[in-house]
Write a protein that binds this DNA or RNA. Structure first.
Length: 600
RNA sequence: GGGGGCGUGGUGAAGUCUGGAGUUCACGCCGGCCUGUCAAGCCGGAGGUCGCGGGUUCAAAUCCCGUCGUCCCCGCCA
């Protein structure tokens, strides 16, 4: 088979310039309009669509073939490019001024009746789309997203190559370091009883590349985290991973900004102002109640603690007495029913609030609220004033521990105020993250990861809970696109961080000894970042979830409907690995198989 | 681990609240007619155990219980 025997040009490359020339095109039957006599075929290939005309009077030998064509048949057509007759030009089609008068039609492959139509006009159940992903990829939406993804990767690679970055591949079978997310494990056959893990990120390898004298590294890296799915989370995802030696935060941000901007340019044809604005972690939390603020809209948090300093309203007074925070947002004109307002209260409770105070501003300025009767006129007036209340506005207040108050109002703010699409792009660097957070069990956990450099080592040991790090996030429209930091480059500081985290020297040696040894050999100060590519492209393509920009994604329960993966394996395979399934697991699998058999 | 939405011919939806014959709409599929359409048009036809299991009832797509799948959210995601 030679391409020249199947086609000599691409559909979308044809125009009035080719009129009179004989061409051969190949592709898929997008639509077929059979008039009994003349038959029109819209032939689609990767470049676009061109109209093929079959006239049985001129070429009776191909009429039968053409009549039998069905949607999505793969065909090759020989014919002559000609101007369309007057009045039949299609201005909606890039090739709409011309058509191909067919002299020969060859069916390369017929297509079975389709499970869904190859167009964007109807929403098809996503599992069905994934089961037939190869057909889904022919639809304009997915074809455009695949193309966009490719262009984004290309823009990243060329932008980083220009800056002298070296693309280095790190392994995807690595040592399990049970920190943070759950690892995917891969059993070793040659060393039975031991396991590789799939990498959660190339973090330690890229740091060792800095030790290895690779001064500027990047990789388009596949990463794996065995945690529950979300619309912006798959267990397997792709990040743009970079690291630079002799760098600090400013060099990292300055290197990434033009790369991200060129991706936006490639996908949207618009320019993004650089440098991106920056905001500290504490400012972001104070103003927006989150470390990933969507700054496309206001509705900022207002501290009302002083207003209620001497309040008789017990719910607020109690919280304030124990160092809590009373804050509010003005959600604007929501026009919610009582049930709608109750829904907000439920949402707040779902997020962990003890309660939510709502107030609706009446036409006369009065505040309609279940708690109005507990508040003085002075307090109500101050609330109106501080929140800039206008007639019809809904005001929401939360009283709790400061972090809880901010977090809940931050989520409600996004629920109620966030713009629907992503027409506008608001990039933001959030800087000066804390080194540690207090985990659920009361122990300190890294706010980013344990290799993040503290701003001040002495301060970190004295006040670990409030210590600031050299870590930063990139945020786009309220979505965290990625994070990075200046890294710890001396082994002693690294050991001190591990100790604060409760990882004793012996354990640190067992888990990270291989890495810490590397730090002993003249490690340059270094810093880096990782950008979530799936999220970035999804937002730029205005897609509601990252599955739309991943060629073969998984469902929320980790199933790939196309391959029915994950699936059971042979006993022989398990035996080679020295693995035996627990009885209840095995019988659950057998039960499933029986159910499937009896269904047939 | 928890909360919620959804599941109806091949596809998308309506019907479910308020039980009464598998009813309807659009697309697709099959056949016929049709020589300038471009989401072609016209005529005809086929196609569904209403996700699955159980219960209530004279009667269940509809009410109840359970279960499976899926999506969204909380937890989780160094």
């Amino acid at each position: 088979m030679d391409e020249a025997t199947l086609r000599t040009t691409r559909s979308a490359h044809l125009g009035t310039g080719e009129i009179g020339t004989e061409v051969r095109v190949a592709g898929w039957v997008a639509t077929r309009r059979d008039h009994g006599g003349v038959i029109f075929i819209d032939l689609r290939d990767a470049s676009g669509v061109v109209q093929v005309v079959i006239n049985p009077e001129e070429h009776p030998q191909i009429a039968e073939t053409a009549h039998a064509l069905r949607d999505e048949y793969c065909i090759s057509v020989l014919g002559t490019v000609r101007e369309r007759p007057e009045g039949t030009v299609n201005p909606d089609l890039p090739t709409g001024e011309i058509e191909i008068g067919a002299t020969e039609v060859t069916v390369l492959s017929p297509a079975a009746p389709l499970p869904f139509q190859i167009d964007d006009r109807s929403e098809v159940d996503e599992v069905r789309r994934l089961e037939y992903r190869y057909l889904d990829l022919r639809r304009p939406r997915m074809a455009a997203n695949l193309r966009a993804r490719s262009e984004a990767l290309h823009a990243m690679r060329s932008g980083l190559a220009e800056q002298g970055f070296l693309e280095v591949e790190t392994p995807t079978l690595v040592k399990s370091t049970p920190e943070g997310a759950r690892d995917f494990l891969v059993p070793s056959r040659l060393r039975r009883g031991t396991f590789y893990a799939l990498p959660q990120s190339p973090q330690l390898f890229k740091q060792l590349l800095m030790v290895g004298g690779v001064e500027r590294y990047y990789q388009i890296a596949r990463c794996y985290r065995d945690e529950d799915f979300r619309s912006d989370r798959q267990v397997e995802f792709t990040q743009l991973d970079i690291e630079g030696a002799f760098w600090g935060q400013d060099q990292v941000l300055a290197s990434l900004e033009p790369v991200v901007a060129s991706v936006v340019g490639a996908l949207r044809g618009e320019s993004v102002a650089t440098p991106f604005p920056r905001m500290s972690y504490s400012e972001a939390n104070g103003r927006f109640g989150t470390d990933k603020p969507d700054i496309r809209f206001g509705m900022e948090l207002t501290d009302l603690s002083d207003v209620f300093a001497a309040t008789g309203f017990k719910a607020f007074a109690g919280v304030l007495k124990t160092g809590g925070l009373v804050a509010g947002i003005n959600a604007g004109s929501l026009e919610l029913s009582r049930a709608g307002l109750d829904g907000l209260v439920e949402r707040a409770q779902e997020l962990g609030a003890k309660g939510l105070v709502w107030m609706v501003v009446e036409d006369d300025g009065a505040l309609r609220s279940p708690v109005s009767k507990f508040l003085t006129e002075t307090e109500l007036e101050a609330v109106r004033d501080r929140l800039g209340a206008a007639s019809g506005d809904t005001l929401l207040m939360v009283a709790d521990e400061p972090a809880t108050t901010r977090r809940i109002l931050g989520v409600l703010r996004v629920d109620l105020g966030q713009p629907d699409g992503h027409e506008e792009l608001a990039f933001l660097w959030v800087t000066d993250f804390p080194v540690f957070e207090v985990g659920a069990d009361g122990r300190l956990v890294p706010a980013h990861h344990p290799f993040t450099a503290p701003a001040d080592v002495e301060d970190m040991e004295k006040n670990p809970e409030s210590a600031v790090s050299r870590a930063y996030d990139l945020v786009l429209n309220g979505t965290e696109l990625g994070s990075g930091s200046e890294r710890i480059h001396d082994p002693e500081t690294q050991a001190r961080v591990f100790r604060i985290l409760g990882i004793e020297d012996e354990e640190a040696e067992f888990r990270f000894g291989w890495f810490m040894r590397g730090l002993q050999y003249g490690t340059p100060p270094h810093a880096g970042f990782a950008v979530g590519i799936d999220r970035l492209i999804a937002i730029l393509q205005n897609e509601p979830n990252i599955r739309e920009v991943i060629p073969f994604p998984k469902t929320q329960t980790g199933l790939d409907p196309l391959t029915a993966s994950p699936g059971p394996v042979d006993d022989l395979q398990l035996e080679e690995l020295g693995i035996e399934l627990r009885l209840e697991v095995r019988s659950a699998l057998d039960g499933e198989a029986e159910v499937e058999e009896s269904a047939e």
